[in-house]
Amino acid sequence: MKSPLRLVAVSGGLQRPSKAAALAEHLLDLITDEIPCEQRLIELGQLAPQLAGAVWRSQLPDAVERELAAVEQADILVVATPVYRGSYTGLFKHFFDFIHQDALIDKPILLAATGGSERHALVIDHQLRPLFSFFQARTLPLGVYATDKDFAGTRLDNEALIERARLAVQRALPLVELARQTRLADALSFE
């Protein structure tokens, strides 16, 4: 029997409920509709008190270590952050500063962001892609950017955005399938 892919989303939102988390969950569901996955959502706002003041990974509590390990062991990542002063949140960057620099090599990553207006839509290409390029990850072809007006509460409520999310996932499927085949090949080599 094939084991499902480990699909992990990281939301850089500081509040709960969070539009970034809602967007990440929507993308998780779209991917899971296409390929069997075990989903996990990491909300950094919930980890903030445990991350504060840590400079070295060895200083982090076990709860944060488990979330870092989940990201490093994921087959596919979805990352979503609210835009704060033209970039991802500091907490988002602080969390990824603890990720081992080789842990995300060739890992497919779907990039997403939320912001108050369209002015910050380029955050995906000018902030998130360079960050994950450092990790040598495979950022997926289309990112998904949502503004406040694309939501009704924390539910996506814009058909054009919902269609873009679907298209982003469809365009990602070849790389996701490659990740699945790599995982199967790795599993077979251990048998």
Rank of each mutant, 00 (worst) to 15 (best):
V8N: 03
Q15K: 11
A74S: 13
L140C: 11
S58K: 08
I35K: 00
G116K: 08
K149M: 10
F95S: 01
R6D: 05
I31A: 01
N158L: 04
A9M: 07
V144R: 01
L30M: 00
K19P: 04
F95R: 01
H26C: 06
L30D: 02
L7P: 11
K149I: 13
V64E: 04
E67F: 08
D75I: 09
Q170W: 12
D62K: 15
P141R: 14
L68Q: 05
I42N: 02
L104I: 06
L111Q: 07
A165H: 03
A63K: 15
A187M: 13
L140Q: 12
Q136N: 14
G53L: 09
K107C: 04
A20M: 08
I109E: 03
R119C: 06
Q46G: 12
F92P: 06
Q170A: 13
A48S: 15
A69C: 10
G53S: 09
E43A: 11
V55C: 10
L60F: 08
Q136Y: 13
I99V: 10
D106K: 15
H94V: 02
R171H: 10
T89K: 05
E65H: 15
H26S: 07
D150Y: 02
L41Q: 02
E118P: 10
V83C: 05
A103Y: 08
P36H: 01
P61A: 03
N158P: 11
H94R: 01
L41A: 01
G143L: 06
R6H: 11
G45Q: 07
V123F: 09
D157N: 08
H126L: 12
L27E: 01
F132W: 06
V79P: 11
D33S: 13
A103M: 07
Q127V: 15
S3L: 14
R171P: 00
R6C: 10
H26Y: 05
L14V: 12
E43I: 06
P61N: 01
E34W: 00
H100A: 10
Q127M: 12
V78F: 04
L131M: 15
I109W: 08
V71I: 15
G90R: 09
L188I: 15
P82M: 02
K107L: 09
A69Q: 14
L60A: 09
I124L: 14
A9C: 06
L7S: 09
E191G: 09
L104Y: 07
A165N: 04
A168E: 10
S11T: 00
F151C: 02
L68W: 06
R16E: 09
D157G: 00
R166M: 04
A137H: 07
I162P: 02
A137K: 07
I162M: 12
E72C: 09
R180N: 03
V176D: 05
P130Y: 03
Q127N: 13
T114E: 03
P108T: 04
R129V: 10
A70M: 12
K107H: 05
L184P: 08
A185Y: 12
G86C: 11
L184C: 12
V176E: 06
L91K: 13
L28W: 04
A74L: 08
F134A: 03
D125M: 07
A146Q: 08
E163N: 08
D29S: 04
D157H: 06
L91G: 14
S18C: 00
L23H: 03
R138L: 15
I42C: 03
A121G: 00
K107M: 05
L178S: 11
L77S: 03
H94L: 05
L28E: 03
R129N: 06
